[in-house]
Amino acid sequence: MSTGRESWRLLLKSKSGLIGLIITGLIVALIVASVIGVLPYDPITQHAASRMQPPSAAHWFGTDRFGRDIFARVAAGVANSALIAVVAVTFATIVGTAAGLVGGFFRGASDAAISGVTNVLFAFPPLLLALSLASVFTRNWFTIAVAIAVVYIPIFIRVTRGPVLTLREIDFVRAARATGQSRWRIMVAHVLPNITSIIIVQVTLSLSWAVLTEASLSFLGLGTPPPAPSLGSMVYEARTLLTLAPWTMLAPGAVMVLFVVGLNLLGDGVRDALDPQSRGRK
């Protein structure tokens, strides 16, 4: 196990980590700009007079079919997509890790139940699962985040349960048990810290998948409901405009790919920095 500072140093040292960090940083800056409202245009207000204008000094990314500034929409869209991804992954991490810990550590009936549910969720086609869940409730960004989270929960369960199974047999855990500490305490104080790096790696990878899943749901008409933009719904809505106004699709498409690339690179960097095995191979 390396310390937090050591990991940061390693992250910054790895090329992909550094590039990923820079790209993600830029995207975060865009999100912040959108959220605190320093951008000159509102992403939702429609302006009939300035429909489908190509990129210009006033509208950096041009305007869409409703005369909305695409730069403002991309910024708001990336904020929405990030919000959905972060909430979905956070939810999946908490639930999945807790279930994986409990199942792996306590074994027995709770483990059997948790493994059963995991198997079921794995066997259920993921996009169809998200799609059905997204149709059940009145759709908003939160219900979509929950739908995506449910798809990712079993991944987190599987990722944590395995190492926990190994850890519980390791000497220092046995030793702690021998001293009569409660099992919950051992689990939180001794087992959890040892799987943090695995979880962090999984979180960074899942973030980029979540952004893409939200985009796929948008494509099937079950993404973030308009008018609030998300990268996925923007790209989807602009597909018909590809020949008439290519910028309406290129801008959100490019930002989406960039965002996912950034997250993936960051994920790689984090894995290199945290995963002792991969570091050992260097």
């Binding site: 980029s208 893409l212 985009a215 796929s216 494509f219 996925g232 790209v235 989807y236 597909r239 590809l242 498409g253 989406m256 790919v257 996912v260 690339v261 993936n264 690179l265």
Partner: peptide
Amino acid sequence: LAGLSIPSFLLGS
């Protein structure tokens, strides 16, 4: 990285 990052509906359309 490109394979992981470009959504299939974008590429497909």
